[in-house]
Amino acid sequence: MILRIDSLTFRYPNGTTALDGVSFGVEAGERVALVGPNGAGKSTLARHLIGIERPASGTIEIDGRRTDGLAIAELARTVGFVFQNPDDQLHASSVAKEVGFGPRNLRFAPDRRKELVESALRRTGLTDLVDAHPHHLSLGERKRVALASVLAMDTPVVVLDEPTTGQDHRSVALLGNLVDELAAEGRTVLAVTHDMDFCAEHFDRVIALEDGRIVADGPVEHWLARASRPTGHAFELPQLTRLGRRLGWQTPVATVEGFLDRLTSDAHDTAEAPAGP
């Protein structure tokens, strides 16, 4: 198990409990979406993984090591954290230098560094912008630079905080493919997101938080079944799930493949059904 969190509790200085006894584990290569309404504790949980926040109680173990006492820069060897606001990190005079910042800090050999930077630029579609000044780019491009700068660190765990916010369709599609590729390489991806279509298409597992507690943990479809109940929730369900509900399907579908499978299966059942008297 690459990540194990046990009874994690966290309180803000004003006494508000942001996380209350959170426990779960993540296997290498899993794609996990952290979802929940605003203030549920998703980002706070994610920030614990890189050591920006420290638990009031409970433990976090990443790649077999307890994170207590490890500095953020040390955890950066294992966890790549892509912040929601790219402008918090962009400081270099070119995209290439910005992407090379992390590998340089981690003291990769020059050849390895060059290889990682080139790969990260290619995967994020930034090869044509290597010499551009990061601050001359659009928000979507700046977010991709921030993502590339983390990918270039070659960490086994990648955490994305609201990765699709402010991104156009092409960038979201690129990001989705990247999540799938990283998982296929055995790297673990955790994403804090409100984008249910993105979540449904690219993540194996959903951990839903409410008031600092885990209220659901499992495959996307299981969570959608729960969220489909008329109990009120903070999300707009994926379009395919809503369409399935309008068609009267009891089991929610989340992906295009799932939807097509279900349609095919229904058509097959209808064809095989005995004709009426």
Binding site: A73, L75, F81, N85, G102, L106
Partner: peptide, 17 residues
């Protein structure tokens, strides 16, 4: 607040202080 956020972002990319 801004400086803290930036510092965290740079530390998360291996910057030691």
């Amino acid at each position: 607040r801004r400086a803290t956020s930036i510092l965290h972002a740079q530390q998360a990319r291996g910057q030691t202080i």
